[in-house]
Design a protein around this nucleic acid. Structure first.
Length: 404
DNA sequence: TCTGGGGTCCTAGGACCC
DNA sequence: TCTGGGGTCCTAGGACCC
């Protein structure tokens, strides 16, 4: 039998901010008061990113508006996110955990899977190992984690979610009926809002109901999703813990604007900065994009997008920007735009160009130029080199980018 | 509930080919 | 050409995750 751990930081952003504030001399541990980490309220990013246990008792949930959270709890304290610090905490945690087993898969900024299969000569009692890890993290880093222990990733993940915070749970095959089947079906990993609604309408209320539902019924309503739903409910999962993730599939950037923009010039300006940003991440990964899309969310919250496939994959900011402009011209419905973005997909590490001799020369030259631009940007910061016509926005943008 | 941002995966439908 | 079927590629949209 495999032995898989799922390690999950309790209220990650809030805990990490609490640690940061305490070390800077802040008098209160914000984990012990009604508090949240919130998006920037001055920039229409006013949602709850993380909440303290007390805030949770007031019924505050992740991703609701701060406005609504405050209505539920007037004395709520709101703290800003500090992404640079979160990344640092995440890195430290993963480095620490990797000393226990080389088989570590980072699942998100605050979660990972550890595979202990075949280490019985090192560790006798896995619950003891988990206990040691949990206590050491608390002592070394000042925040708590939940650890789920199971024979596959899915069950380990479900287990770490049981009772929080600072707890260890197991979910082995003989425990599935008692510990998992009694839970509401919406608690099952991969069952989101829509799927939950559909399941409830079929009278499937618990994970156990789903596990026992006839596959024919599920297939009728969920097509190919039916099998994975049923297997998840049965606690079946064969997926491996993979230390080295497959190559990135897509890189995207999007931004909710200060207000809804109707001016094409303004929207194009945003696209310019975004082309710069996604282009740089792409080059950092030494990859090229074959597909590029412009994405929108309009004032009515309706999403739409437009994409194109390139003959020659690129990673040059100038190319990305030019294509983004073409896509924009073709797709913008002249509606007021709340959120706009660029998505690069179909990423490859190789460029096989089908170009004439002269174009090839041009391409080489562009790459050299781009290299120099990247060097300057890395040294002096983002957007040091921008068209003169966009200069006026520079200060404002820099302020914004510093937060990241 | 006046609703962020970055990802992955899936599906339906259309274009195009033989 | 009042027209089949299968395969492949592409696009748009949506569901889900943290």
């Amino acid at each position: 039998m495999r032995i898989i751990f799922h390690v999950d930081v309790n209220n990650a952003f809030l805990s990490w901010s609490a640690v940061d504030l305490l070390r800077k001399g802040y008098p209160v541990d914000i984990r012990t008061i009604p508090s949240i980490i919130g998006g920037d309220e001055t920039k229409r990013r006013e949602i709850v990113l993380a909440k303290s246990p007390i805030a949770k008792k007031y019924g505050i949930v992740t991703a609701e508006t701060i406005y609504s959270a405050r209505k539920k709890c007037p004395q709520l304290q709101v703290f800003p996110a500090n992404y640079a610090w979160y990344r640092e905490c995440s890195l430290k945690l993963m480095n620490y955990l990797s000393q226990y087993t080389p088989s570590l898969e980072q699942f998100s900024i605050d979660e990972c899977f550890l595979d202990f299969t075949g280490t019985s000569y090192l560790y006798k009692d896995y619950f003891e190992v988990a206990l040691k890890i949990k206590e050491e993290i608390k002592e070394k880093f000042g925040f708590t984690v939940n650890i789920g222990i199971a024979s596959n990733k899915l069950c380990a993940k479900m287990a770490s979610d049981f009772e929080k915070p600072d707890k260890i749970h197991t979910l082995f095959p003989n425990e599935i009926a008692t510990k998992m089947w009694t839970l509401p079906v919406g608690d099952l990993f991969m069952v989101g809002k829509r799927t939950k609604e559909k399941l409830l309408s079929l009278g499937i209320k618990t994970i156990g109901d789903l596990a026992n539902a006839p596959i024919s019924l599920l297939k009728r309503h969920f097509k190919n999703q039916a099998i994975s739903l049923k297997e998840a409910a049965l606690g079946k999962d064969d997926s491996k813990v993979v230390s080295i993730k497959d190559a990135t599939k897509c890189i995207s950037v999007s931004e909710t604007l200060q207000y809804d923009y109707k001016d094409p010039a303004k929207l194009k300006k945003i696209l310019f900065y975004q082309a710069e940003e996604v282009g740089r991440s792409l080059r950092k990964k030494k990859m090229y994009a074959k597909s590029i899309a412009v994405t929108y969310k309009n004032a009515f919250f309706k999403s739409y997008s437009h994409q194109m496939t390139l003959v020659n994959p690129t990673n040059l900011t100038s190319d990305i920007y030019q294509y983004a402009l073409v896509l924009f011209e073709q797709s913008w419905r002249e509606d007021a735009i709340r959120n706009i973005g660029i998505r690069l997909s179909d990423l490859t590490t190789v460029v096989q160009e089908q170009v004439s001799f002269f174009e090839e020369k041009k391409e080489e030259k562009n790459n050299k130029v781009q290299e120099v631009i990247d060097q300057i940007t890395n040294k002096y910061g983002k957007n040091m080199l921008i068209p003169a016509s966009y200069k006026e926005d520079e200060i404002e943008r820099e302020e914004k980018l510093k937060e990241r």
